[in-house]
Amino acid sequence: MNLEELLGIELPIIQAPMAGVQGSALAAAVSGAGGLGSIPCAMLGPDGIRKEVEIVRAATSRPFNVNFFCHVEAPPDEAADAAWRELLSPYCRELGMAETQAPAGAARVPFNAAAADVLEALRPPVVSFHFGLPAPDLLARVRRCGARILASATTVAEALWLQERGVDAIIAQGWEAGGHRGHFLSTDLTEQPGTFALVPQVVRAVRVPVIAAGGIADAAGVAAARALGAAGVQVGTAYLLCPEATTSSVHRAALKEPRRVHTAVTNVFTGRPARGIVNRIVRELGPLNPQAPAFPRAAGPLAPLRAAAEKQGSGEFSPLWSGQNASGCREVPAAQLTRELAGVPAR
Rank of each mutant, 00 (worst) to 15 (best):
G45S: 14
G45M: 14
G45P: 12
P46K: 05
G48Q: 06
K51P: 00
E54V: 04
R57S: 11
R57D: 03
R57N: 07
A58M: 01
A59K: 10
A59R: 12
T60R: 01
S61N: 14
R62D: 00
R62M: 06
P63C: 00
P63N: 04
P63G: 00
N65H: 05
N65G: 06
N65I: 06
V66A: 02
N67W: 03
N67C: 00
N67K: 01
F69Y: 12
H71R: 11
V72S: 12
V72F: 08
V72E: 11
E73H: 02
A74C: 02
P75C: 12
P75L: 11
P76H: 02
D77E: 07
E78H: 13
E78A: 15
E78R: 15
E78I: 12
A79Y: 04
D81M: 09
D81N: 06
A82K: 09
A83H: 09
A83M: 01
W84P: 10
W84Y: 06
E86C: 04
L87M: 14
L87A: 15
L88T: 06
L88P: 02
Y91Q: 05
Y91K: 04
C92G: 04
R93N: 05
E94R: 03
L95K: 08
G96I: 08
M97A: 03
A98L: 13
Q101K: 15
A102R: 14
P103T: 12
A104C: 08
G105H: 09
R108T: 15
R108N: 13
R108W: 14
R108Y: 14
R108L: 15
V109I: 15
V109Q: 14
F111S: 09
A113K: 08
A115R: 15
A115V: 09
A116Q: 02
V118Q: 03
V118D: 05
L119I: 10
E120K: 12
E120W: 05
A121P: 00
P124C: 09
P125H: 05
P125C: 07
S128D: 01
F131K: 06
L133G: 02
P134D: 00
P134N: 00
A135L: 11
D137E: 12
L138G: 03
L138Y: 01
L138C: 08
A140L: 10
R141K: 12
R141F: 01
R143A: 07
C145Q: 07
C145K: 05
C145R: 02
G146K: 03
G146P: 13
G146T: 10
A147T: 12
R148S: 04
R148D: 00
R148C: 04
I149Y: 10
L150N: 04
A151I: 06
S152T: 15
S152D: 15
A153R: 01
A153V: 04
T155C: 09
T155H: 08
T155P: 10
V156M: 02
A157T: 14
A157L: 12
A157D: 15
A157H: 11
E158I: 07
E158W: 07
E158F: 07
A159G: 10
W161E: 11
W161M: 06
L162N: 09
E164W: 07
R165C: 08
